[in-house]
C-alpha cells in the first residue's frame, strides 16, 4: 500500500520534536479526523534555519510531515511557500489516493508556521 520511501520516512522520521526557540509555529488538522500536524520553525534572515514537527496520524501523515520538513529545511521563506502537496507526494514516490489529504496537510502546516512568523513580525 505504501512506497518504500513512505515507510522509510514513517519508521525513521526526520526532524521529529519541538523547537524551544521557534518563531514560526503552525498546527493544522484536528483529532476528530485523525490527523494533527504541528510544525515548529526557526526563521533567521528569511531562511528556515531549523525545523521540527510533531504529528498524530497515520503512516502517511507522519511520512509527509517528515518529508515536507526535509524539503524546506535551509530554504528561504519564498521557496518554502512554493512547496506544493504534489511535490511532497512525488518526493515520497506517491501516496495512495485516500492518503493524498495528508500531503495537503503537510503543505498547509508549513504555510501555517510561516503565516504565524509573519504575523509576529507585524506585531513587533
Amino acid at each position: 500500500m505504501y512506497s518504500d520511501k513512505v515507510m522509510d520516512h514513517f519508521t525513521n522520521p526526520r526532524n521529529v520534536g519541538e523547537l524551544v526557540n521557534a518563531n514560526g509555529i503552525g498546527e493544522v488538522g484536528n483529532a476528530k479526523c485523525g490527523d494533527i500536524m504541528k510544525i515548529y520553525m526557526k526563521i533567521e534572515n528569511d531562511t528556515i534555519s531549523d525545523i521540527r514537527f510533531k504529528t498524530f496520524g497515520c503512516g502517511a501523515a507522519v511520512a509527509t510531515s517528515s518529508m515536507a520538513t526535509e524539503m524546506v529545511k535551509g530554504k528561504t521563506i519564498q521557496e518554502a511557500l512554493d512547496l506544493t502537496n504534489k511535490a511532497v507526494a512525488e518526493a515520497l514516490e506517491g501516496l495512495p489516493p485516500e492518503k493524498l489529504h495528508c500531503s495537503v496537510l503537510a503543505e498547509e502546516g508549513i504555510k501555517a508556521a510561516i503565516d504565524y512568523y509573519y504575523k509576529r513580525q507585524d506585531v513587533q
Binding site: Y2, M7, F10, T11, C33, G34, D35, F56, G57, C58, G59, A60, A61, V62
Partner: peptide
C-alpha cells in the same frame, strides 16, 4: 494520543498482524 494505522504498521514491522477500527485503516 496515537492513531491505529500507525500502530498496525509498526506492529507489522515486528511481524505482528492485527487490526484497527481507525479511519486511516
Amino acid at each position: 494520543c496515537v492513531e491505529g494505522e500507525s500502530v498496525l504498521l509498526l506492529l507489522d514491522g515486528c511481524g505482528v498482524c492485527a487490526s484497527s477500527g481507525s479511519a486511516c485503516s
